[in-house]
Amino acid sequence: MRRGLSVFNVTSIALGLAFLYLPILILVIYSFNASRLVTVWGGWSTRWYVSLLGNEAMLEAAWISLRIAFLTACAATVLGTLAALALVRAGRFRGRLLFSGLVYAPLVMPEVITGLALLLLFVAIEIERGFWTVTIAHTTLTMCFVTVIVQARLLGFDRSLEEAAMDLGCPPLRTFITVTLPLIAPAIAAGWVLAFMLSLDDLVVANFVTGPGATTLPIRIYSEVRLGVKPEINAICTIIIGVVAAGIIVASLLTKFAGAKPAPIGGQI
């Protein structure tokens, strides 16, 4: 693409970015609002952050969500990386078409369908619903995002390094650990971070498959939001935005550090 921006190009980018960022900016600013009314500005204050510290239900939900997100990210990274290796390296195998279908479908499948389907499975196998069922559901959802990212990285690098190691008599498993793994490590790390954040964010699927005692943060926020807008919600949202932004920046630096195109984070999906 030839470089060079026209006025129209600059305007579209500027308006687009303003549209994307203004609502989030407003939300963050109003979390520091002293007034109880969300729409009236009453001066700067951190009182809603202080009152958040006393909101045990919210803190409990945050702790549950963080634990689920951590376990989900680890499991999804292992499964997602294996799936990427299978898609890129295994060549033809029986059922490959079904396999790639199963990998890509969760990326776009409406969440209400996935949530309902997983719940009915958990009911059918009579597993107790709660922490672990949410973790399994989130692992299934997020592993596909890991696969897409790692797959892009695997397709993008020079196989001759691996072949050289093998030609020199290095066994396949050792070649994988000493040559392949370091090369795809940034994509795997980026996949881990994204799985973590997707799990932290999910409301619909978690609401279907959760049980007593496993109210995640989005479920908690949702039940409060349905009753109306509250400054305390703005405060918790601001904290989440901060954590997510930090995570994204770390993930993209990891990808960039390894010299990969930035595209795998979003362009593939």
């Binding site: 609502p23 989030i24 939300l27 729409t39 409301l203 949202c237 932004a245 994204i248 362009g267």
Partner: peptide, 21 residues
């Protein structure tokens, strides 16, 4: 690219909530 990706990974629920206000 980063600027477009960033809100994309920010919580869906939060972004909808932002518009409620």
């Amino acid at each position: 690219f980063m600027l477009i990706v960033l809100p994309f990974w920010t919580s869906f629920l939060i972004r909808v909530y932002a518009w409620m206000t």
